[in-house]
C-alpha cells in the first residue's frame, strides 16, 4: 500500500516485448499485399471479390465457432484474416464464390477450431482447405479452367489456358518466358504467380523477424538441388538444367508455400534443426511429386505431410538443456530408446 492505494504485484519480468499476436498477423497481411496487388493486375478486380469472400467467411466462421464453443473471441488477433487471405491466393480467379466460402469454413472450423484454435491446429488451415477443395471440386480448382493472365483487359471472354507446370515439356506448348514467370504473367492461382511480389513479402517477414529464413531456405534449396540434378539428367546440359530449375522454382505455389505456408507457427517445428529438417522434407516431397507424381503440383501435399511429422521432428531435435555433458546426452538418448 502506498498512499492508501494498492500496488500491482506480479511475477518477474516486469518488462514485456511490444510485439503481440495481432502485430505479427498484421505483418503477415502487409507481406501479402504485393502478391495481392500483382494478382489484381494479372487477374483483374475479381481477385478482390474472391479475397473479400474468403476473408469475410473466415472471420465469420471463427467468430461463430468460438461463440458456439463458448470460448473467448479471437477474431481480434487477425489470424483468421491471414488464413482467409492465404486461401484466396491459393484459388483460381474464376472459382465460384460459394466454393471459396466453403474453403474458409473448412479451414477455420474443421482444421483450426476443432483442434482448439490458434496455435493448436496440427495442419495448416489454408493448405488443408485448398486440398479439400481440390479433391471435391476438381474441375473448378484445376484442369483446363485456368484463366490466362491479363485476359480480363481484353474484350473477349476469359481465355482459358493451362498452367506452365502442366504445359512444360509438352510438345508444341507455348510456355511463358522466365521473365514472365518472375513477374507473374502466367496462369495459376491468384497469389502464386508473381515470384517477385512473394519474394518481397518473404524478405519483409524475415527482416521483421516474423519468420526465420531457415524453412524457406531449406525448402527452396533442397528443391532446387533435386531439380538441378533432374534437369541435368533430362536435358544433359548445365545451362538447360539451370533454366529448368529456375522454371520449377517459380512455378506452381512453391514461393507462396515456402514463405507463407510452410512457415506457419502452429504447424512447423520451433527448433532450429527441426526447421531445417522440415524445410528439406517439404523440398524433397514437392520435387518427388512434380517429377514422378500424377499431379502437376505438390506443394500443398508436401507441406501437409510435413505438418503431420512436426511432433516427431520436434521430439528428435529438442536441444539438451545448457551444459548437459556429452556423456549424459548419450546416456539420455539410450534411456529414451
Amino acid at each position: 500500500m502506498v498512499n492508501g492505494k494498492k500496488l500491482v504485484v506480479s511475477a518477474s519480468p516486469h518488462l514485456r516485448t511490444k510485439t503481440t499476436t495481432t502485430k505479427i498477423m498484421l505483418d503477415v497481411i502487409i507481406a501479402l499485399i504485393p502478391a495481392l496487388v500483382a494478382s489484381v493486375i494479372f487477374f483483374g478486380p475479381k481477385t478482390l471479390l474472391v479475397t473479400a469472400v474468403t476473408v469475410a467467411t473466415a472471420v465469420l466462421s471463427e467468430y461463430i465457432a468460438r461463440k458456439v464453443m463458448k470460448r473467448h473471441n479471437t477474431i481480434g488477433d487477425l489470424s483468421a484474416v491471414v488464413t482467409g487471405l492465404i486461401l484466396a491466393l491459393n484459388l483460381p480467379v474464376n472459382v465460384p464464390l460459394w466454393i471459396a466460402a466453403i474453403g474458409s469454413v473448412v479451414a477455420i472450423i474443421v482444421v483450426k477450431q476443432f483442434f482448439g484454435g490458434i496455435g493448436q491446429n496440427f495442419a495448416n488451415p489454408a493448405i488443408t482447405a485448398r486440398i479439400v477443395l481440390l479433391l471435391s471440386f476438381a474441375t473448378h480448382m484445376s484442369g483446363s479452367e485456368w484463366v490466362a493472365p491479363l485476359s480480363w483487359l481484353g474484350k473477349a471472354d476469359a481465355v482459358t489456358t493451362a498452367t506452365p507446370l502442366a504445359l512444360y515439356g509438352k510438345e508444341g506448348a507455348v510456355i511463358p518466358t522466365l521473365f514472365d514467370m518472375f513477374i507473374g504473367n502466367r496462369a495459376g492461382s491468384l497469389g502464386e504467380t508473381c515470384t517477385v511480389a512473394l519474394l518481397i513479402g518473404g524478405i519483409y517477414l524475415i527482416a521483421r523477424k516474423v519468420i526465420s529464413f531457415k524453412i524457406p531456405v531449406a525448402y527452396l534449396g533442397s528443391f532446387a538441388l533435386i531439380m538441378l540434378i533432374a534437369g541435368f539428367v533430362k536435358e544433359d546440359s548445365v545451362g538447360a538444367a539451370l533454366e529448368y530449375t529456375a522454371y520449377q522454382l517459380m512455378s506452381g505455389g512453391l514461393m507462396l508455400g515456402a514463405f507463407f505456408m510452410a512457415t506457419d507457427y502452429s504447424t512447423s517445428p520451433i527448433n532450429t534443426d527441426g526447421k531445417y529438417i522440415f524445410g528439406v522434407g517439404c523440398g524433397i516431397i514437392t520435387a518427388l511429386i512434380r517429377l514422378f507424381g500424377s499431379l502437376p503440383e505438390g506443394v500443398s501435399f508436401a507441406i501437409l505431410i510435413m505438418n503431420l511429422l512436426v511432433p516427431h521432428i520436434e521430439k528428435i531435435t529438442t536441444p539438451k538443456p545448457f551444459g548437459t555433458p556429452k556423456k549424459e546426452k548419450k546416456a539420455k538418448e539410450a534411456d529414451a530408446k
Binding site: 500491482v8 506480479s10 516486469h14 514485456r16 516485448t17 510485439t19 503481440t20 499476436t21 505479427i24 479471437t74 488477433d77 489470424s79 484454435g117 490458434i118 496455435g119 507457427y265 502452429s266 520451433i270 527448433n271 529438442t318 536441444p319 539438451k320 538443456p321 545448457f322
Partner: peptide, 23 residues
C-alpha cells in the same frame, strides 16, 4: 500494467530467447 494474456501461437520466441536452451 502488463499486456493481456492471449493464446500461445507456438511462435517459438520463448525457446529462441532462452539462454539455457530450454523449451
Amino acid at each position: 500494467v502488463l499486456k493481456d494474456e492471449t493464446d500461445c501461437i507456438r511462435c517459438g520466441r520463448c525457446a529462441i530467447a532462452c539462454p539455457m536452451s530450454l523449451m
